[in-house]
Amino acid sequence: MRLESLNFSAKLGLSGFLITVILGALSAVTLIGLLYSQHNSGFNIPDMEKVQSHYSDSALVSSMKGSMYEYVAEDGDIDVIAQWIAEGAKDDAFFKEEVLYIIEEDCQKCHSRKSQMTKAITSMPFSSYDDIVKYTEGGYSWTKMAKTAHIHLFGIAVFLVMVSLVMAFSSYVAWIKIALISAGWIALWLDIASWWLAKFSNVFAYVISVAGGVEIGAVCAMSGLCLLNLWFRLPDAVLESSAQSSD
């Protein structure tokens, strides 16, 4: 069976799926652009420093550089928190005088058990040393890894296997199929493994970015190619010989 031999309705349904995958990938890219850049609207090129921070810094510091940046009064405040964590995140005078002051000024309004602010997050209070110290561990902990990795792995696997299968039934020469299908899966594993590894070396922050790019690129390329294959006559050079003869 080949994609181009499907009946019209099957082609239509498959096209809907492939277009949706491409849109999903583009919105993921937009989200990443927003999270890791200075801007809060539109598409942005992620800032490498923020990617590194997200995967190697503590949740407290990486959030202050990332999603919570808009609430930080001045950048110097992030350095104060980072310094405190680097020195062991102790319940000392520095914590009481400097760290807690910044958190009270900039974060507690929303991060407290009884906050009623429109954007309150009562499940994540920063009211005391014990509350705050939970977010000082660098990088992804096993718990955070387990929480986030399985969602990504299962979620991505489900549509990746479908896109891979559609690709497998296309008429492209074997090497294109093999290259794209393998790229998709290998990039996924590399990406997620690097979340954990990033706290040991900055190199893995780059692996995350590159693998993420390859992942999204492979998914978009496969979906795009299959769409072409469904609806257009392709140049012989990219087609498998059996497909050529049946042409």
Binding site: Y71, A73, E104, E105, Q108, K109, S112, R113, K114, S115, M117, P125, S127
Partner: peptide, 11 residues
Amino acid sequence: DVACHMQNDEG
């Protein structure tokens, strides 16, 4: 926001 201070957990 810089002037805004809300009750903490102890009110």
